[in-house]
Amino acid sequence: MSIEFSGLNELDKNLRKLAVSEKKIRNRAIRKAGEAFAERLERNTPVDRETERKGSHVHMKDDVQISGVNQDGIISVGYGKETHWRVHFAETGTIKQRPQGFIQQTEEEMQDRILEIMQAEIRKGLGL
């Protein structure tokens, strides 16, 4: 048995097939991909030097969080309660700040890598 992935839509379709029969394998693959994405997001997240001098807030970089895999095979990677409300200011910009686009950059950088990770984990789990 062999599984070929040609893109995210194909991957999603194959993961849904696996959801019924091989839930543990699917979840492990999704978790590994989520962890890799979170690591890259943490590296790409900017640090506000002004906040750093004041020492009053938690940095977004230090607040990247990963949810568990839900029953539909979805995992969320994002920011915690203390920082989620200010992420969009840095990502999309404000009147006084240029957009930094670090989330979009991370998505673009990791798209192929996530496919590789998931493909490897699924193959490993199925003994291929």
Rank of each mutant, 00 (worst) to 15 (best):
A120T: 05
V87A: 01
R113M: 06
D63M: 06
E116F: 01
K124D: 11
E109C: 04
G55W: 10
H59F: 07
D63N: 13
P46D: 00
Q119T: 14
R49T: 12
Q100A: 00
R98I: 11
Y79N: 00
Q97A: 15
G93H: 12
R86A: 04
V87P: 03
E42D: 02
Q100K: 14
I122S: 07
D48K: 07
Q119E: 11
G80M: 07
E42T: 14
I95N: 12
A38N: 03
G127R: 11
R43A: 12
K124I: 09
R40N: 03
H57L: 02
A38T: 06
S56G: 08
L115G: 04
R98N: 11
I66A: 03
M110Q: 12
I114H: 03
V87C: 00
H84F: 13
E52H: 08
V87W: 00
N70W: 07
H59C: 00
Q119G: 09
G127M: 06
D112K: 15
D72Q: 10
H84W: 09
T51V: 11
E52M: 14
G68W: 02
L41N: 05
R113T: 14
K124S: 13
Q104N: 09
D63C: 04
M118Q: 01
N44M: 02
I117N: 08
E107P: 08
V87G: 01
G73Q: 02
P99C: 07
R123E: 02
S76T: 15
K81E: 15
Q71N: 04
A90I: 04
G127H: 05
G55T: 10
T45Y: 10
K54I: 11
Q71V: 08
P46W: 06
A90M: 11
H88A: 02
M60R: 10
R49F: 05
Q105G: 00
